[in-house]
Design a protein around this nucleic acid. Structure first.
Length: 259
DNA sequence: ATGCCCTTGTAACAAGGA
């Protein structure tokens, strides 16, 4: 299976770039975040023309996630049991079975600042996600949890750790929450960089991309069986170049599925 | 070259992103 995840920062604004990328890369499954579109307005026909079915969870202006699959979509679920809200539950998770693999597309809350209520929300959301994923693994699925985690797993995953002292995305509790997900039996698949370091996000401002000032916050977590069968993993930084890019680049992982 | 904020909703900004 060729599996990818991409925070597109509005699927409508990104549609030409998205269709071009899908046609060139042809992943079996693509997880999307920050689609910023209500389900009824999702460009279903445009992606169907390339052979993809859609499982979307979106409410409009903010957030929004989706899974595009050309291996079918079964047992589609929006959100998860016990998912916290801010204060209402937001469109941050969708899951579906694609072929033999249970796939999740998630958009973890940003957190904003360490003292902000959004930070507590982020940690609560991650704890509830852990419990939901524990149930999925208990059901014996091959599992892929993909998305924008808004956590840099280590200091190697930001361009300059000194710039992040006192900030979200690198704090001990956030990294501990990610470690709890990995402790369920998931592997953060290490991507190779096509150039520079394997970052997946660069701020639009101040030429950050061109200066190599990025972060790796978009992750693909695989359960043990698919993680042992990874054939390649990379970040497609070409998608961050050119006209009207997202501020995130796609992460692409190939692995052999169990027979 | 890779090139120096962007997106949506609502009405000139507000809010969020990380």
């Amino acid at each position: 299976m060729l599996l990818a995840t991409w925070n597109v920062n509005s699927i409508m604004a990104r549609l030409p770039r998205l269709l071009e990328w899908l046609d060139a890369t042809r992943p079996d499954v693509l997880c999307l975040q920050e689609t910023k579109v209500a389900d009824g307005a999702f460009p279903t026909a445009e992606v169907a023309a390339l052979g993809y079915e859609v499982a979307a969870n979106g409410s409009g202006r903010w957030n929004g996630v989706a899974i595009l699959s050309r291996l079918g979509l079964e047992a589609v679920t929006a959100g998860f049991a016990g998912e916290p809200g801010f204060p209402e539950v937001e469109a941050r998770a969708v899951s579906a079975t694609c072929g033999r693999v249970r796939v999740w597309s998630i958009y973890v809350p940003n957190g904003r600042e360490l003292e902000h209520p959004h930070y507590a929300y982020k940690l609560a959301w991650l704890a509830a996600l852990r419990d939901a994923l524990r149930s999925e693994l208990g059901a014996g699925h091959q599992l892929a949890v993909c998305g924008d985690f808004n956590i840099a797993p280590s200091d190697e995953d930001v361009w300059d750790p000194a710039e992040f002292v006192g900030s979200t995305h690198v704090s001990v509790p956030e990294r501990a929450a990610l470690t709890e997900l990995l402790d369920l039996g998931l592997t953060d698949v290490p991507p190779r960089a096509l150039k520079g370091r394997p970052f997946s996000y660069w701020d639009y401002r101040a030429g950050m991309f061109h200066k190599g000032m990025g972060m790796r916050i978009d992750l693909v977590l695989l359960s043990r069986a698919p993680a042992s069968r990874v054939t390649d993993a990379y970040i497609d930084r070409e998608a961050r170049k050119g006209t009207a890019p997202s501020d995130h680049a796609p992460v692409v992982v190939g692995f052999a599925t169990e027979s």
